[in-house]
Design a binder for these strands. Sequence first.
DNA 1: AAAAACAATTTAAACATTTGTTTAAATTAA
DNA 2: TTAATTTAAACAAATGTTTAAATTGTTTTT
Lengths: 205, 205
Amino acid sequence: MHQDKREHIITKAIELFAEKGFEGSSIRDLASIADVNIAMVNYYFGSKEKLYEAVIEKRVLYMRDFIDNVLSNTSLSLIDQLDLIIDGFVNRFLSDPLYHRVLQQELLVSKRAQMHQRIIELIIKNAKDVINIIEKGIRNKEFKKADPELIFASILGTISQVMLSKTLCNCLMEKPIEFNPYADKKIQQRLSAHIKQFVHALLTK
Amino acid sequence: MHQDKREHIITKAIELFAEKGFEGSSIRDLASIADVNIAMVNYYFGSKEKLYEAVIEKRVLYMRDFIDNVLSNTSLSLIDQLDLIIDGFVNRFLSDPLYHRVLQQELLVSKRAQMHQRIIELIIKNAKDVINIIEKGIRNKEFKKADPELIFASILGTISQVMLSKTLCNCLMEKPIEFNPYADKKIQQRLSAHIKQFVHALLTK
DNA sequence: AAAAACAATTTAAACATTTGTTTAAATTAA
DNA sequence: TTAATTTAAACAAATGTTTAAATTGTTTTT
């Protein structure tokens, strides 16, 4: 019961932070949409900032186990590993657009240096894995020469660009404004296919 | 003199908003770093929100005339047009990272629907131009089949990803933390080359 | 099983700060 | 003298947080 209420507040907090940003969200707004007393946030989390940390931590390790899984499968070719990782990235990001939005906001404002650093370290770890695969392929002559760090930036950047603004995404894709592109399987498939396409075009001979 | 002071406040406001976000910046902070009285913001701009609009408007048309220029040069091949536009994008974004950061923040939080819409319209206009060039090339059989909308997303997304966090960028590029990657000509060149490389790999036969 | 005691949760009210903004007087420029 | 600018002080509203009492849930005692 205690945990349930904690989780409920976190869930509503993600929604609010994603829409208004951390500084733009008030405890009173949160209490209102979560339908709890304003003192409950401090009761359960200690402070607004601690709640924010709980929000971030909730899913921060979500991506890791997946990549570790791919890497440990030694029967896969390098390009198959990349394809799997791209599918995984697209899938996991699109499955939780609100959380991704909160992370992006945190990287874009530097009010909490410590949390900033925490998120960066996680991204870097993912990046290094992708870069390693690409570099290995280039050394092998299996891949063409390319810029591994910036290929990673393109993979992540393409996804983030699509997720930056629902309205922008719908305008670009000629969808109605109220359409939710991130929940759409076709869009997800299309995004995944496009990223794999340019990675293939860049690397495979 | 009046204009000078206005401009000075805007310049300092961009710095502050880029670092702390709009909601995270206070008039008192701004007055302090701009070295003016706290009443001056309201005197010159009317309100904090109006100041913010002035900040956004200041360079909002910066990209347009450049693209129009490229498009009006009929002697250029389609792929040369794309290359020029990519160079222009990279150059203009990296030349003003603080402004770009403010724009990104505004797209990421939806507190001011009207300004949101204004920025999206500008991006869409740029996007349509790029997409048109790609579609024309595909119809011509000059280009391979590809996803024009998502190629635009990859171009813009790659740049934005690099500019998302200085620390993240330096970590990825193996530069010291205090290094300023956006002012570095080599990084700019490298980013530009990478984007052109994957656009070429996707489109040219 | 009922009562009492205790701890955990919830509440409304109050707290001290900080916020954007306004005011009215003082200063400078025209 | 008039208008434009600058200033310090004050304003009301909103903010995160705390408090102390009320309620609910759980455990212990009878």
